[in-house]
Amino acid sequence: WVPDSEAPNCMNCQVKFTFTKRRHHCRACGKVFCGVCCNRKCKLQYLEKEARVCVVCYETIS
């Protein structure tokens, strides 16, 4: 899990986070992404309901 303080930009597209461009943690890899790069949901083994995942993890999992 990457702390918010260590991620000033999206770890995929590099967009800078602001008050309106929020950070989202991928529940699969723990990296920090913008809403566009972390907009998929899928079922993870260790969680009961679907969770937010990044586009890279989504392609790997599904």
Rank of each mutant, 00 (worst) to 15 (best):
I61N: 13
Y46K: 12
K49D: 13
T20S: 10
F17I: 03
T18M: 05
G35R: 11
R22K: 05
K49H: 12
K41T: 12
C10D: 00
G30A: 05
R22L: 11
S62I: 06
Q45V: 07
N9H: 05
V36Y: 11
P8S: 10
V2M: 04
R52A: 05
N12L: 09
Y58W: 05
V55L: 13
C34Y: 02
I61Y: 13
V56P: 08
V32K: 04
N9L: 13
N39I: 10
S5R: 10
C29I: 00
C34H: 01
C42H: 15
G35P: 07
Y58S: 07
K16V: 11
K43N: 12
V53T: 12
G35S: 11
C13S: 01
C26K: 00
V55H: 08
K21W: 11
T60S: 13
M11I: 07
N9Y: 10
N9R: 08
V36D: 13
M11T: 06
K41Y: 13
V56A: 10
P8N: 09
R27G: 03
V53A: 13
S62T: 13
V32D: 04
C37I: 00
A51K: 10
C38Q: 03
N12I: 12
T20E: 09
F33G: 03
A51Q: 13
R40Y: 13
E6F: 04
P8C: 03
Y46C: 14
K21A: 04
C42R: 11
K43V: 11
V32T: 05
P8M: 14
Y46A: 14
C54P: 02
K49E: 07
I61K: 13
C38F: 02
C42K: 15
V53L: 06
D4Y: 05
A7H: 05
T20I: 09
K49I: 07
C13G: 01
L44M: 06
E6C: 06
Q14N: 13
K21I: 02
A28C: 08
C54G: 02
L44F: 07
C34S: 01
K31Q: 12
C10T: 00
V32C: 08
C34P: 03
C34Q: 01
R27D: 03
Q14Y: 04
G35D: 14
E6Q: 09
K31M: 05
R22W: 06
C38I: 03
L44V: 13
E59F: 08
G35Q: 13
A7T: 03
P8G: 07
A51S: 09
K41M: 14
V2W: 02
